[in-house]
Design a protein around this nucleic acid. Structure first.
Lengths: 117, 117
DNA sequence: TTGACATATTCCTATATCGGCATATGATGC
DNA sequence: GCATCATATGCCGATATAGGAATATGTCAA
């Protein structure tokens, strides 16, 4: 086995910068393929191929409209990523430092519960 | 050009499941390489190689201690990921639905400010 | 029907990935 | 020094990836 297929999960799909660009573009609302082509200044096949990957992991949905295809964001597949990174938020956010302080204070004031962490 | 180098950014580094496992293991505290080997039940070279990638994107730091090497999580490089996905949170979180409701109410009543984080 | 437009797919090449195995480097203790 | 432990690196093969170019599919319009 070589590398995990990008088509497998959202983590891999989103590791590709162009695909993130596409998602960001779709965040403003649905778009036709060609709108994305123009917007991202990329060759059309490349866009279509990335859209395919995004489709396969459920990050976007298509709606045909005449000869055009309207792509729409479906961000729910991003949730696992969000939930995963969220556990690390404390490592950079001062908000969490503040929270830690509060917790420490609580421990001290709250009496002599001998909890160590 | 083929695929983006995993060593490039956190997005790519984290797309690999084993590396996420490693980070999760390190979230509990620093660990020697061999601890990780035992914990994840993986061949040592594989662990070392993944650690190298994680090191190169700044997700972990090493501290030599005798003939051992203690790896430590440095979650700050995860921040770009967190910030990016956070923009999509509204797409699955009911909290945001609630927030939307609040905003609607505010529009209607124009009266009181209700702080939801 | 025919031709123009919109999008998807196929074929191709270069690359870099992951894992396995063997080995190198480096530190410790005798 | 030498053997051992702990970790890192090198080389290998298989795979699949991203991008390019050409082409296929599908839809509309005259």
């Amino acid at each position: 086995m070589a590398r995990a297929a990008t088509t497998t999960d959202a983590f891999n799909a989103v590791a590709e910068p162009v695909r993130r660009q596409i998602l960001d573009a779709l965040a403003d609302g649905e778009r036709r393929v060609n709108d994305l082509v123009v917007l991202l200044e990329l060759p059309q096949p490349q866009v279509s191929k990335h859209l395919r990957v995004l489709r396969e992991v459920g990050l976007v949905r298509v709606r045909p409209e005449g000869r055009e295809r309207i792509y729409r964001l479906d961000g729910r597949s991003l949730r696992p990523i969000h939930d995963w990174v969220k556990n690390y938020e404390r490592m950079w956010s001062e908000r969490f430092d503040a929270l830690d302080d509060v917790l420490e204070d609580l421990k001290k004031e709250e009496g002599r519960g001998n909890d160590d962490n």
